[in-house]
Amino acid sequence: MTILVDVSHRLGGFQLEARFASPGHLTALFGPSGSGKTSIVSMIAGLIRPDRGSVEIDGRVLTDRASGIFLPTHRRRIGAVFQDARLFPHMSVRRNLAYGKWFAPARERYADTGRIVELLGIGHLLERRPNLLSGGEKQRVAIGRALLASPRLLLMDEPLASLDEARKSEIMPYIERLRDELKIPIVYVSHSIAEVARLATDIVVMSDGKVAASGPTGEIIQRLDLLPAEERGEGGVVLDMTVAAHDIRYGVTVLKSAAGEIRVPRIRAETGSAVRLRLRARDVMIATAEPVALSAQNILRGKIARIAHASNPLVEIHVDCHGQQVLSRITRLSLDALRLHVGQEVFAVIKSVAFDHENLSNSLADQGF
Protein backbone atom coordinates (compact mmCIF):
# COMPACT_ATOMS: atom_id res chain seq x y z
CA MET A 1 0.00 0.00 0.00
CA THR A 2 1.67 3.21 -1.19
CA ILE A 3 1.50 6.60 0.51
CA LEU A 4 2.14 9.58 -1.78
CA VAL A 5 2.44 13.10 -0.36
CA ASP A 6 3.35 16.15 -2.43
CA VAL A 7 2.20 19.35 -0.71
CA SER A 8 3.10 22.99 -0.27
CA HIS A 9 1.54 25.22 2.35
CA ARG A 10 2.25 28.42 4.25
CA LEU A 11 1.32 28.66 7.91
CA GLY A 12 2.00 32.21 9.03
CA GLY A 13 5.73 32.68 8.54
CA PHE A 14 6.36 28.93 8.15
CA GLN A 15 6.61 27.45 4.67
CA LEU A 16 6.06 23.70 4.29
CA GLU A 17 7.32 21.92 1.16
CA ALA A 18 7.03 18.15 1.50
CA ARG A 19 7.23 15.46 -1.13
CA PHE A 20 7.74 11.76 -0.45
CA ALA A 21 6.52 8.29 -1.36
CA SER A 22 6.42 5.37 1.05
CA PRO A 23 5.46 1.73 0.52
CA GLY A 24 3.28 1.96 3.63
CA HIS A 25 3.67 -0.46 6.55
CA LEU A 26 5.01 1.90 9.25
CA THR A 27 6.33 5.22 7.96
CA ALA A 28 7.89 7.49 10.56
CA LEU A 29 7.88 11.27 10.19
CA PHE A 30 11.00 12.13 12.15
CA GLY A 31 12.43 15.49 13.12
CA PRO A 32 12.58 18.15 15.83
CA SER A 33 9.58 20.12 17.06
CA GLY A 34 8.50 22.71 14.52
CA SER A 35 9.88 20.83 11.51
CA GLY A 36 6.45 20.27 9.94
CA LYS A 37 5.60 16.70 10.99
CA THR A 38 2.21 17.43 12.57
CA SER A 39 1.27 19.73 9.68
CA ILE A 40 1.77 16.84 7.25
CA VAL A 41 -0.36 14.56 9.43
CA SER A 42 -3.08 17.23 9.49
CA MET A 43 -3.03 17.40 5.69
CA ILE A 44 -3.26 13.62 5.39
CA ALA A 45 -6.20 13.64 7.82
CA GLY A 46 -7.96 16.47 5.97
CA LEU A 47 -7.69 18.94 8.84
CA ILE A 48 -5.62 21.32 6.69
CA ARG A 49 -6.20 21.99 3.01
CA PRO A 50 -2.76 22.57 1.44
CA ASP A 51 -2.17 25.59 -0.81
CA ARG A 52 -0.88 23.25 -3.49
CA GLY A 53 -0.39 19.56 -4.06
CA SER A 54 -1.92 16.17 -3.43
CA VAL A 55 -2.25 13.30 -0.95
CA GLU A 56 -2.89 9.76 -2.16
CA ILE A 57 -3.23 6.50 -0.20
CA ASP A 58 -3.08 3.23 -2.13
CA GLY A 59 -4.30 4.88 -5.32
CA ARG A 60 -7.17 6.68 -3.56
CA VAL A 61 -6.86 10.45 -3.98
CA LEU A 62 -7.70 12.27 -0.76
CA THR A 63 -6.52 15.71 -1.85
CA ASP A 64 -5.64 17.15 -5.23
CA ARG A 65 -5.75 20.92 -5.45
CA ALA A 66 -5.23 20.90 -9.22
CA SER A 67 -8.37 18.78 -9.72
CA GLY A 68 -10.36 20.38 -6.90
CA ILE A 69 -10.50 17.14 -4.88
CA PHE A 70 -10.62 17.45 -1.10
CA LEU A 71 -12.34 14.65 0.78
CA PRO A 72 -13.67 15.77 4.18
CA THR A 73 -12.09 14.16 7.22
CA HIS A 74 -15.04 11.87 8.00
CA ARG A 75 -14.87 10.33 4.51
CA ARG A 76 -11.14 9.59 4.55
CA ARG A 77 -11.44 6.53 6.79
CA ILE A 78 -8.35 7.45 8.79
CA GLY A 79 -7.84 6.46 12.42
CA ALA A 80 -5.85 8.78 14.70
CA VAL A 81 -3.99 8.36 17.99
CA PHE A 82 -2.49 11.37 19.77
CA GLN A 83 -0.18 12.08 22.73
CA ASP A 84 -3.14 12.10 25.08
CA ALA A 85 -5.53 9.18 24.73
CA ARG A 86 -8.67 11.40 24.57
CA LEU A 87 -10.91 8.67 25.99
CA PHE A 88 -14.41 9.49 27.20
CA PRO A 89 -14.05 9.58 31.01
CA HIS A 90 -17.68 8.64 31.69
CA MET A 91 -17.52 5.51 29.51
CA SER A 92 -16.02 2.11 30.27
CA VAL A 93 -13.22 0.77 28.07
CA ARG A 94 -15.79 -1.46 26.36
CA ARG A 95 -17.98 1.54 25.45
CA ASN A 96 -14.99 3.63 24.38
CA LEU A 97 -14.02 0.85 21.99
CA ALA A 98 -17.56 0.47 20.69
CA TYR A 99 -17.68 4.19 19.92
CA GLY A 100 -14.99 3.70 17.26
CA LYS A 101 -17.25 1.43 15.20
CA TRP A 102 -19.66 4.22 14.37
CA PHE A 103 -17.08 6.00 12.22
CA ALA A 104 -17.37 3.39 9.47
CA PRO A 105 -20.49 2.38 7.51
CA ALA A 106 -21.71 -1.05 8.60
CA ARG A 107 -20.99 -2.60 5.19
CA GLU A 108 -17.35 -1.38 5.31
CA ARG A 109 -16.48 -2.52 8.82
CA TYR A 110 -13.78 -5.15 8.83
CA ALA A 111 -12.24 -4.81 12.31
CA ASP A 112 -13.11 -7.63 14.69
CA THR A 113 -13.49 -6.48 18.31
CA GLY A 114 -12.27 -9.74 19.78
CA ARG A 115 -9.13 -9.77 17.66
CA ILE A 116 -8.29 -6.13 18.42
CA VAL A 117 -8.83 -6.67 22.15
CA GLU A 118 -6.53 -9.72 22.05
CA LEU A 119 -3.93 -7.99 19.88
CA LEU A 120 -3.64 -5.09 22.33
CA GLY A 121 -3.94 -7.18 25.50
CA ILE A 122 -6.83 -5.16 26.96
CA GLY A 123 -9.40 -7.88 27.65
CA HIS A 124 -9.02 -7.51 31.42
CA LEU A 125 -9.65 -3.76 31.19
CA LEU A 126 -13.04 -3.78 29.44
CA GLU A 127 -15.18 -2.85 32.45
CA ARG A 128 -12.82 -0.18 33.82
CA ARG A 129 -13.13 3.54 33.30
CA PRO A 130 -10.18 5.61 32.00
CA ASN A 131 -9.34 7.09 35.42
CA LEU A 132 -8.41 3.58 36.59
CA LEU A 133 -5.97 2.95 33.71
CA SER A 134 -2.22 3.60 33.49
CA GLY A 135 -0.89 5.85 30.74
CA GLY A 136 0.15 2.86 28.65
CA GLU A 137 -3.22 1.18 29.09
CA LYS A 138 -5.04 4.34 28.03
CA GLN A 139 -2.97 4.51 24.84
CA ARG A 140 -3.69 0.87 24.02
CA VAL A 141 -7.42 1.54 24.40
CA ALA A 142 -7.10 4.65 22.21
CA ILE A 143 -5.36 2.57 19.54
CA GLY A 144 -8.10 -0.05 19.80
CA ARG A 145 -10.82 2.57 19.36
CA ALA A 146 -9.06 3.93 16.26
CA LEU A 147 -8.70 0.43 14.77
CA LEU A 148 -12.36 -0.45 15.39
CA ALA A 149 -13.29 2.41 13.06
CA SER A 150 -11.95 0.07 10.32
CA PRO A 151 -9.54 2.70 8.97
CA ARG A 152 -7.63 2.52 5.70
CA LEU A 153 -4.73 4.32 7.39
CA LEU A 154 -3.66 4.85 11.01
CA LEU A 155 -2.03 8.14 12.08
CA MET A 156 -0.06 8.12 15.32
CA ASP A 157 1.10 11.59 16.39
CA GLU A 158 3.75 11.28 19.15
CA PRO A 159 1.73 8.52 20.88
CA LEU A 160 4.47 7.80 23.44
CA ALA A 161 5.59 11.36 24.15
CA SER A 162 3.61 11.72 27.40
CA LEU A 163 4.67 8.33 28.80
CA ASP A 164 7.59 7.50 31.08
CA GLU A 165 10.18 4.92 30.03
CA ALA A 166 8.40 2.03 31.76
CA ARG A 167 5.10 2.79 30.01
CA LYS A 168 6.88 3.22 26.65
CA SER A 169 8.45 -0.21 27.07
CA GLU A 170 4.99 -1.58 27.83
CA ILE A 171 3.30 -0.25 24.72
CA MET A 172 5.99 -0.55 22.01
CA PRO A 173 5.59 -4.33 21.56
CA TYR A 174 1.90 -3.74 20.83
CA ILE A 175 2.71 -1.18 18.14
CA GLU A 176 5.11 -3.72 16.65
CA ARG A 177 2.27 -6.25 16.54
CA LEU A 178 0.08 -3.74 14.69
CA ARG A 179 2.90 -3.18 12.20
CA ASP A 180 3.52 -6.89 11.59
CA GLU A 181 0.09 -8.52 11.93
CA LEU A 182 -2.33 -5.98 10.47
CA LYS A 183 -2.36 -4.81 6.87
CA ILE A 184 -3.15 -1.18 7.77
CA PRO A 185 -0.44 1.34 6.84
CA ILE A 186 0.71 3.51 9.74
CA VAL A 187 2.15 7.02 9.68
CA TYR A 188 3.99 7.53 12.94
CA VAL A 189 5.23 10.94 14.14
CA SER A 190 8.17 11.09 16.54
CA HIS A 191 11.27 13.09 17.44
CA SER A 192 12.89 10.06 19.13
CA ILE A 193 15.43 8.12 17.07
CA ALA A 194 15.14 5.18 19.49
CA GLU A 195 11.42 4.87 18.71
CA VAL A 196 11.65 5.15 14.94
CA ALA A 197 14.69 2.85 14.70
CA ARG A 198 12.74 0.15 16.54
CA LEU A 199 9.34 0.62 14.94
CA ALA A 200 9.64 2.14 11.48
CA THR A 201 10.05 0.32 8.19
CA ASP A 202 10.61 3.66 6.43
CA ILE A 203 11.62 7.10 7.67
CA VAL A 204 10.90 10.59 6.34
CA VAL A 205 13.27 13.10 7.94
CA MET A 206 11.80 16.61 8.28
CA SER A 207 13.86 19.77 8.79
CA ASP A 208 12.56 23.36 8.68
CA GLY A 209 9.47 22.40 6.71
CA LYS A 210 11.29 20.32 4.10
CA VAL A 211 12.05 16.64 3.55
CA ALA A 212 15.76 16.24 4.28
CA ALA A 213 15.76 12.54 3.33
CA SER A 214 13.45 9.55 3.05
CA GLY A 215 13.87 5.83 2.60
CA PRO A 216 14.10 2.47 4.38
CA THR A 217 15.00 2.67 8.06
CA GLY A 218 18.24 0.73 7.61
CA GLU A 219 19.54 3.36 5.18
CA ILE A 220 18.34 6.51 6.94
CA ILE A 221 19.45 5.50 10.43
CA GLN A 222 23.10 5.51 9.28
CA ARG A 223 22.92 9.19 8.29
CA LEU A 224 24.07 10.75 11.55
CA ASP A 225 24.23 14.13 9.80
CA LEU A 226 20.42 14.04 9.52
CA LEU A 227 19.90 13.77 13.27
CA PRO A 228 19.45 16.72 15.63
CA ALA A 229 22.59 17.37 17.69
CA GLU A 230 20.97 15.96 20.83
CA GLU A 231 20.09 12.69 19.06
CA ARG A 232 23.36 11.98 17.22
CA GLY A 233 24.61 9.79 20.03
CA GLU A 234 21.62 7.49 19.34
CA GLY A 235 22.37 7.06 15.63
CA GLY A 236 23.85 3.94 14.11
CA VAL A 237 22.51 0.98 12.14
CA VAL A 238 19.65 -1.48 12.32
CA LEU A 239 20.46 -5.17 11.85
CA ASP A 240 17.81 -7.80 11.12
CA MET A 241 18.94 -10.88 13.02
CA THR A 242 17.71 -14.31 14.07
CA VAL A 243 17.73 -15.87 17.53
CA ALA A 244 20.36 -18.62 17.26
CA ALA A 245 20.54 -19.87 20.86
CA HIS A 246 20.02 -19.05 24.54
CA ASP A 247 22.70 -19.46 27.19
CA ILE A 248 20.66 -19.93 30.37
CA ARG A 249 23.72 -20.19 32.61
CA TYR A 250 24.99 -16.73 31.70
CA GLY A 251 21.64 -15.13 30.85
CA VAL A 252 22.62 -14.42 27.26
CA THR A 253 20.86 -14.72 23.89
CA VAL A 254 22.93 -15.33 20.76
CA LEU A 255 21.73 -13.49 17.64
CA LYS A 256 22.97 -14.31 14.15
CA SER A 257 23.04 -12.59 10.76
CA ALA A 258 25.39 -12.32 7.78
CA ALA A 259 27.48 -9.88 9.83
CA GLY A 260 28.18 -12.55 12.44
CA GLU A 261 27.02 -13.42 15.95
CA ILE A 262 26.08 -10.89 18.63
CA ARG A 263 25.38 -11.75 22.27
CA VAL A 264 22.85 -9.67 24.15
CA PRO A 265 21.21 -9.88 27.60
CA ARG A 266 18.70 -12.72 27.35
CA ILE A 267 15.36 -12.06 25.69
CA ARG A 268 12.27 -14.28 25.82
CA ALA A 269 12.04 -15.34 22.20
CA GLU A 270 11.98 -18.67 20.46
CA THR A 271 15.01 -19.94 18.58
CA GLY A 272 14.63 -18.91 14.94
CA SER A 273 12.61 -15.78 15.77
CA ALA A 274 13.36 -12.58 13.85
CA VAL A 275 14.86 -9.75 15.90
CA ARG A 276 15.62 -6.15 14.97
CA LEU A 277 18.78 -4.89 16.64
CA ARG A 278 19.77 -1.21 16.83
CA LEU A 279 23.53 -0.83 17.04
CA ARG A 280 24.58 2.68 18.06
CA ALA A 281 27.73 4.04 16.44
CA ARG A 282 28.97 5.29 19.80
CA ASP A 283 28.95 1.70 21.15
CA VAL A 284 31.21 0.27 18.43
CA MET A 285 34.99 0.22 18.85
CA ILE A 286 37.43 -0.47 16.02
CA ALA A 287 40.45 -2.80 16.27
CA THR A 288 43.02 -3.46 13.54
CA ALA A 289 43.87 -6.90 14.96
CA GLU A 290 41.50 -9.51 16.37
CA PRO A 291 41.20 -8.73 20.08
CA VAL A 292 42.08 -11.34 22.71
CA ALA A 293 41.56 -11.38 26.49
CA LEU A 294 38.80 -8.78 26.17
CA SER A 295 35.60 -8.48 28.20
CA ALA A 296 33.57 -7.43 25.15
CA GLN A 297 32.21 -10.64 23.60
CA ASN A 298 30.92 -9.29 20.29
CA ILE A 299 33.58 -9.08 17.58
CA LEU A 300 32.57 -8.68 13.93
CA ARG A 301 35.10 -8.97 11.11
CA GLY A 302 34.80 -6.63 8.13
CA LYS A 303 36.41 -4.07 5.85
CA ILE A 304 36.23 -0.30 6.01
CA ALA A 305 33.86 0.79 3.23
CA ARG A 306 33.82 4.51 3.95
CA ILE A 307 35.27 7.12 6.28
CA ALA A 308 33.06 10.18 6.79
CA HIS A 309 34.50 13.22 8.49
CA ALA A 310 31.84 14.37 10.94
CA SER A 311 32.01 17.45 13.13
CA ASN A 312 35.43 17.90 14.69
CA PRO A 313 36.85 15.92 16.49
CA LEU A 314 34.76 12.93 15.34
CA VAL A 315 34.73 10.68 12.28
CA GLU A 316 32.35 7.93 11.18
CA ILE A 317 33.73 4.57 10.10
CA HIS A 318 31.46 2.46 7.88
CA VAL A 319 32.44 -1.21 8.13
CA ASP A 320 31.13 -3.78 5.63
CA CYS A 321 30.63 -7.03 7.56
CA HIS A 322 29.80 -9.58 4.87
CA GLY A 323 27.26 -7.31 3.20
CA GLN A 324 25.84 -5.73 6.35
CA GLN A 325 26.90 -2.26 7.40
CA VAL A 326 28.16 -1.48 10.90
CA LEU A 327 28.83 2.12 11.87
CA SER A 328 31.41 3.33 14.40
CA ARG A 329 31.95 6.88 15.62
CA ILE A 330 35.50 7.51 16.81
CA THR A 331 37.82 10.49 17.27
CA ARG A 332 40.15 11.82 14.60
CA LEU A 333 42.96 11.06 17.03
CA SER A 334 42.01 7.36 16.98
CA LEU A 335 41.68 7.43 13.19
CA ASP A 336 45.25 8.70 12.81
CA ALA A 337 46.70 6.56 15.60
CA LEU A 338 45.32 3.37 13.99
CA ARG A 339 46.12 4.60 10.45
CA LEU A 340 42.69 3.54 9.28
CA HIS A 341 41.88 3.65 5.56
CA VAL A 342 39.19 2.46 3.15
CA GLY A 343 39.56 -1.21 2.24
CA GLN A 344 41.38 -2.11 5.44
CA GLU A 345 40.32 -5.24 7.32
CA VAL A 346 39.21 -4.38 10.85
CA PHE A 347 37.22 -5.76 13.76
CA ALA A 348 34.13 -4.05 15.15
CA VAL A 349 33.91 -4.63 18.91
CA ILE A 350 30.67 -4.19 20.89
CA LYS A 351 29.89 -4.81 24.55
CA SER A 352 26.80 -6.91 25.30
CA VAL A 353 25.73 -4.36 27.92
CA ALA A 354 25.31 -1.80 25.12
CA PHE A 355 21.96 -3.40 24.33
CA ASP A 356 18.85 -2.54 26.33
CA HIS A 357 15.08 -2.68 25.73
CA GLU A 358 15.25 0.26 23.30
CA ASN A 359 17.86 -1.44 21.12
CA LEU A 360 16.13 -4.80 20.73
CA SER A 361 12.71 -5.73 19.44
CA ASN A 362 10.94 -8.95 18.63
CA SER A 363 7.27 -8.63 17.81
CA LEU A 364 6.85 -12.39 17.60
CA ALA A 365 7.40 -13.00 21.29
CA ASP A 366 7.08 -11.33 24.65
CA GLN A 367 10.34 -9.71 25.68
CA GLY A 368 12.22 -9.48 28.92
CA PHE A 369 15.72 -9.39 30.33
Rank of each mutant, 00 (worst) to 15 (best):
G13S: 12
G13Y: 09
G13M: 11
G13D: 14
G13V: 14
G13H: 11
F14R: 06
F14V: 06
F14Q: 00
Q15K: 08
Q15I: 03
L16E: 14
L16W: 05
E17M: 13
E17C: 11
A18M: 12
A18I: 09
A18R: 05
R19E: 10
R19D: 03
F20T: 03
F20R: 03
F20C: 08
F20Y: 10
F20I: 01
F20W: 02
A21D: 15
A21H: 14
S22F: 14
S22I: 10
P23N: 13
P23G: 13
H25V: 09
H25T: 07
H25P: 02
L26N: 02
L26W: 05
L26C: 12
L26K: 01
T27E: 03
A28R: 06
A28S: 15
A28V: 11
A28G: 10
L29E: 13
F30I: 06
F30H: 08
F30A: 04
G31R: 12
G31Y: 07
P32K: 05
P32L: 04
G34Y: 00
G34Q: 01
G34I: 00
G34P: 00
G34D: 07
G34K: 00
G34E: 00
S35L: 00
S35T: 04
G36K: 02
G36F: 05
T38Y: 04
T38E: 00
T38A: 02
S39T: 14
I40V: 15
I40A: 11
I40W: 05
I40F: 03
V41W: 03
V41D: 06
S42I: 05
S42P: 04
M43E: 07
M43H: 01
M43I: 13
I44Q: 09
I44P: 04
I44V: 15
I44G: 08
I44A: 13
A45T: 03
A45R: 02
A45M: 09
A45L: 15
G46Y: 07
G46C: 13
G46V: 09
L47G: 08
I48S: 07
R49L: 02
R49H: 12
R49A: 07
P50I: 01
P50N: 14
P50M: 04
D51W: 03
R52Y: 03
R52G: 01
R52N: 12
G53N: 10
G53A: 06
G53E: 07
S54L: 08
S54T: 02
S54P: 00
V55H: 10
I57N: 06
I57E: 09
I57Y: 09
D58Y: 01
D58G: 15
G59C: 04
G59L: 01
R60P: 02
R60H: 14
V61K: 04
L62C: 03
L62A: 09
L62M: 13
L62I: 13
L62K: 06
T63H: 10
T63G: 04
T63E: 06
